[in-house]
Amino acid sequence: MNPEKILNLSVDCVVFGYDVNTKSLNVLLIKRYLETNNNVLVDDYVLTGYHVYKHETLDETATRVLRELTGLTNQYKKQFKAFGNPNRLTSEKDLPWIENEKFNSRTITVAYYFLLKTEDVSLTNNKYSAAWFPINKLPDLGFDHKEIIQEAYEDLKVKCLSEPIIFKLLPDKFTINDVQDLYESILGIEIDNRNFRRKLINKKYIIALDEKQVGVSKRPAQLYMFSKDIYDKIFEKNYLISI
């Protein structure tokens, strides 16, 4: 027996991933395509999302949607806003899709964003035709998903300055330059290298490893790791921490 859906309540997920090779903050989107009698009615991209089942919490729905898209669980997630504009699903290009999928045009969606490493997601033979797009080079989007992504991005920019969430986007072992590149990618600014390096290596929760980069053409850089245990202890003691 299929679970019963709440027809006018959904969850949409903004999945952020960072590519250390291209130094790009990306969003994972799925293909939306509808054709009738060789006439293309809809051809764009949207966020992954779905109706909330009656037996689920909102968090459970978001986790299910991410798992079905990527196969991943236990990723960092944040519920950041509800979107309920009466016209959010009723633009001219969205109406054929709504009619074909029998969606309730007055659907309210609760939006989450997830943070993960692009390398952890295999898109080979993905049934949703999912693809990564740089945050500043998004394709044509359906519904109000451009607005949802922008709201998620603004929230991420604020939150990454007060909590160590960026380490969810980096490999377990990273260089100081990797951290700086990620901050610059998220914030869209240039950061003074010497000042940033000095501040970061003085953080007790940034642990220097007895390892260096391998397989690089230039001089290999020192590797570090983030210690959540140490961060949590410092946070409990001081309550407020400046990243």
Rank of each mutant, 00 (worst) to 15 (best):
N39K: 14
N21T: 10
V14L: 01
T36P: 07
N38R: 15
I30V: 14
V14F: 03
F16Y: 06
L25F: 00
V40L: 09
K23L: 10
K23D: 13
V14W: 01
V20A: 06
Y33V: 11
D19Y: 08
V20E: 11
Y33H: 15
S24F: 14
T22S: 13
D12T: 06
V27I: 15
V11N: 02
C13V: 15
L29W: 14
D12Y: 05
V11Q: 00
N8K: 04
N26W: 02
L9Q: 10
R32T: 05
N26S: 13
L7V: 11
N38F: 11
N8E: 08
L7W: 12
V20K: 08
F16I: 07
V27Y: 09
K23I: 10
R32G: 02
C13K: 02
V14I: 05
N26M: 08
L7N: 12
R32D: 06
L9R: 09
Y18I: 07
L25S: 04
N21M: 10
C13E: 08
L9S: 04
Y33T: 12
N21A: 12
L25N: 06
D12G: 03
L29F: 14
G17I: 00
N21H: 10
N39P: 11
V14T: 02
V27T: 14
N26I: 05
S24P: 14
S10L: 00
K31H: 14
V40S: 08
L9F: 07
L34D: 00
C13I: 11
L29M: 15
